[in-house]
């Protein structure tokens, strides 16, 4: 898959970082504004997909890149599971217990464990969608070879 023209490449260079930052903003403000882990994760994956489409897979030397994304995906869901189980370690018998101090509602550092869940679910969703896309791209590469 060849890349696109110089105009598209330059514009993508300028935009992709901003899209990535917007995804991070959506994730870490997930308990305050609309959005959260699922929305922000899809936007993060979208910024990478933008780069892959503009530059083409020749430029990126994709061979077995999806090994990295699946690693992040599995680690993130494992962390979510550990956070959910951490309530049990404190002696209560509640799965998904929000044991951390809640803070003042409406501030960035508040809502106990919810921002952490948001962050790790965001990583998991972004890595999943990116590995699906990379698998399709690599499959197309191998076919055309």
């Amino acid at each position: 898959m060849k890349g696109m023209t110089v105009v598209v490449k330059k514009t993508t260079q300028l935009i992709a970082g901003l899209v990535f930052l917007y995804g991070i903003y959506i994730i870490i403000h997930g308990h305050l504004t609309p959005g959260g882990g699922f929305a922000g994760g899809v936007i993060l994956a979208g910024s990478f997909i933008l780069l892959i489409l503009a530059y083409g897979s020749d430029f990126l030397h994709l061979v077995r890149e999806e090994a990295g994304t699946t690693l992040y995906e599995n680690l993130a869901i494992l962390v979510v599971l550990v956070l959910a189980l951490s309530g049990l370690l404190l002696g209560t018998h509640v799965f998904f217990l929000n044991w951390a101090p809640k803070g003042v509602a409406g501030e960035l550092i508040s809502a106990g464990l919810l921002p952490l869940y948001n962050i790790f679910i965001g990583i998991e969703v972004a890595a999943s969608i990116l590995s699906i896309f990379l698998a399709l791209v690599i499959f197309k590469e191998e076919i055309t070879k």
């Binding site: 994760g41 899809v42 999943s128 969608i129 896309f133 399709l136």
Partner: peptide, 24 residues
């Protein structure tokens, strides 16, 4: 619905993977 939309993307992509495999 929020979770179901993301699952829908993953299952649609899986369906397309099966379809392109069958086409090959």
């Amino acid at each position: 619905v929020l979770t179901a939309i993301v699952i829908g993307l993953a299952t649609t992509a899986m369906l397309m993977a099966v379809i392109i495999r069958l086409y090959r």
